[in-house]
Amino acid sequence: MEGLFALFLYGNFVLFLFLYMYINRYRRLIGFHLGMNIAMTAGGMAGLLSGILLIFQYPFHFTLITILATIIGMGVGALFGALFDYQTMLTGLINGLMVGIMAPMLGAILTEQLFFGIVLEGLTIAVVTILIVAIRST
């Protein structure tokens, strides 16, 4: 089951990389409010996914995973926010920080890990699809 969670983690990394390249192409057309929502969503989802999936794989390394998930959430939020302006970068950074700190705590108490992981991946794909539709409609 750990291999499946590693595959989910890698797939999410690739998904966020493609999303970043897609948003970078259309960043001049995206308004301030949508840019803020994109940065918050990307940082929060990256922190949530990395924290939960890593704690599923390594349940006895709570401190290290919390630090790593926080750094990943902050980095992704800052990168997506930096596409727009400094205020958006700061918002994405802070949202990634908060979710990255909270995600391993949520992952540590879950009992149905496989079911939750599949539902989380489905929600991630739904959120990315909504972001792409929102960008295309601007």
Results as ranks from 00 to 15, higher is better:
M74E: 07
A6L: 15
H61I: 02
G100N: 07
I130V: 12
I135T: 03
I130M: 13
V14Y: 14
I55N: 04
M89K: 07
I30W: 00
L29Y: 04
I55M: 04
G44R: 10
H33A: 12
G100A: 06
H33R: 13
L64M: 15
A46S: 15
A103T: 04
L106V: 14
V127T: 14
L83D: 00
F62C: 06
A108N: 13
T91Y: 11
G47Q: 11
R27W: 02
Q113G: 05
M45I: 15
G96V: 05
A108C: 03
M74D: 05
A126K: 11
Y86G: 14
I23D: 00
V133Q: 11
A78W: 10
V76H: 05
N95V: 12
L48W: 12
F18W: 09
L19V: 02
G117H: 04
L110C: 06
E112P: 05
A108E: 14
D85H: 04
I94T: 10
I38T: 00
A108I: 08
I109S: 07
M40V: 14
M102G: 07
G100E: 06
F16V: 07
F5Y: 14
M102D: 05
G47R: 13
L34N: 02
T41F: 15
M98F: 08
I71G: 14
M105Q: 10
I71E: 13
L15H: 05
L110S: 06
F13Y: 15
I55Q: 04
T66V: 11
T66Q: 11
T88P: 03
L123Y: 12
G51L: 09
A6G: 11
D85S: 06
L110N: 06
L123P: 02
T66E: 08
G44E: 07
G81N: 06
L64D: 13
V133I: 12
M40E: 10
